[in-house]
Write a protein that binds this DNA or RNA. Sequence first.
DNA 1: CATACGTGGAA
DNA 2: TTTCCAAGTAT
Length: 335
Amino acid sequence: MVRDFAPRVLAWYDASARVLPWRIAPGSDAVPDPYRIWLAEVMLQQTTVAAVAGYFARFTECWPTVADLAAAEDADVMAAWAGLGYYARARNLLACARAVVAEHGGRFPESEAALRALPGIGDYTAASVAAIAFGRPAVVVDANIERVMARHRLIATPLPLAKREIRAALMPLVPQDRPGDFAQALMDLGATICTPRSPVCAICPLMADCRARGRPDIERLPVKPPKKAKPRRHGLAHWIVREERVWLVRRPGKGMLGGMRALPGGDWTDTRPTESGVAEVNHGFTHFDLTLKLVHRESHDAAAEGEWWPISDLDAAGLPTLYRKLIDKMLERDG
DNA sequence: CATACGTGGAA
DNA sequence: TTTCCAAGTAT
């Protein structure tokens, strides 16, 4: 049965592939654009298809080619990424586009190794671009494929240790003729049938030889390490207004919300400020929860760099969601 | 190997 | 409301 693993997966994909803006439909003779494949793959890192769609449309309209993106202003790209999260991706996106232009003549390299050496491209993205854009028989392993394989082969080793087994199990199954479709097929399968909860095994093309099929503990696969409790931190943000404009700063290039426009304010600490504010939000980050309070200030530090931004045009500032939530709350209150 | 790094939707 | 977690990468 294992011998026809890829044919079953590909036949299912031919009939059931999701239609996505960055995808070339199976059977189409269109030529994939490595720039669009790469852009989508970076946006999709730890991010849902639904969240990415609008950003992908705006980016490809503003910057149709990798050369256009490489020539863009940092501030414009960071603002366009605002709200999508994991902002190191946007910084690396620009660095990668510029490296492709400066070091590869404006064309993405085709080998997995050369792709892997570019900023923001790790094991997964290097393999997926090699397979999808260039038809290379790379072994693509993302969270969907980990789940499909851990269940099909009943791999109970906890992640991330299981990654090696999963990769070894998948490698001999990759078809030489359609590696890109194979990878996308397994990801679609994981996203729509072999889901984390309530998998729809009855319509799965792999059900005949899936070792986890029918087991009550199928939802526990793949086994993941226990999560740690998230601490809560507190911070202040300053609302400084002059002539219908608000004072915005840019956060340092590394760390939380690195490189993004923001409201000025102090460090985030583990003690709640006593000062009363005009608005407050709770915002959940990956490894801590933040309570951020908005307070009025008359002026900013004399030495501070920043810009007076029209309050009526805050949408264009490209503020991270944390600050948008806080400002929206205050404006809603004050009218 | 462990940790830092966003956000929004689903159950 | 809380918890989970989604096409991961860098350090």
